[in-house]
Simulated assay, not measured.
Amino acid sequence: MREPAISGDRYSHAGVNHSHGVLLPAVLDLITELERFDTLGGHRRRRLFELGCGNGSVAHALTERGWDVTGVDPSAERIAQAQTAYPHLNLQTL
Rank of each mutant, 00 (worst) to 15 (best):
L91P: 04
G8D: 07
R45T: 11
N55F: 05
A85M: 00
P25L: 01
Q81M: 13
H13Y: 02
L51V: 14
R44D: 02
H88S: 10
I79N: 04
D73K: 01
P4F: 06
G42I: 07
I31G: 10
P4G: 03
S7V: 15
V27G: 09
Q83L: 15
V22E: 10
Q83W: 00
N17W: 10
I79L: 08
W67D: 06
F49Y: 09
C53Y: 01
E77G: 04
Q92P: 00
L30T: 13
T63L: 08
G41F: 15
A76C: 10
I79E: 03
Q92M: 06
I79M: 09
F37R: 14
D73V: 08
H20L: 07
F37I: 14
S57A: 15
R2T: 13
G54E: 04
D73L: 00
Y11R: 03
V72R: 14
R78L: 15
L40T: 13
T32A: 15
G8F: 10
T84A: 13
L89W: 04
A61N: 05
T63A: 09
Y86H: 10
L24N: 03
A26K: 13
L91Y: 00
A80R: 13
G41E: 06
T63C: 15
R65G: 11
V22Y: 13
Q92Y: 10
R45A: 11
S57Y: 05
P74C: 11
G71F: 00
P87S: 03
L24P: 10
L28F: 12
L51G: 09
Q92T: 07
V16K: 04
R44V: 11
Q92L: 07
C53F: 08
I6L: 14
E35W: 02
I31D: 05
V72K: 07
L28D: 10
A5E: 12
W67G: 02
A14C: 05
R45L: 06
L51N: 06
A5D: 11
H18S: 13
V27E: 08
D38K: 05
N17Q: 11
A26M: 14
H13S: 14
A26H: 12
A61T: 05
E35K: 01
I79Q: 08
V69E: 01
H18Y: 12
E77M: 02
G41C: 10
A82E: 01
G56C: 05
P87H: 02
I31A: 03
G15M: 03
V16I: 15
H20E: 06
F37Y: 10
D68I: 13
A80K: 11
A82N: 06
R2Q: 11
S57D: 04
N55R: 00
R46K: 14
L62P: 12
V22Q: 06
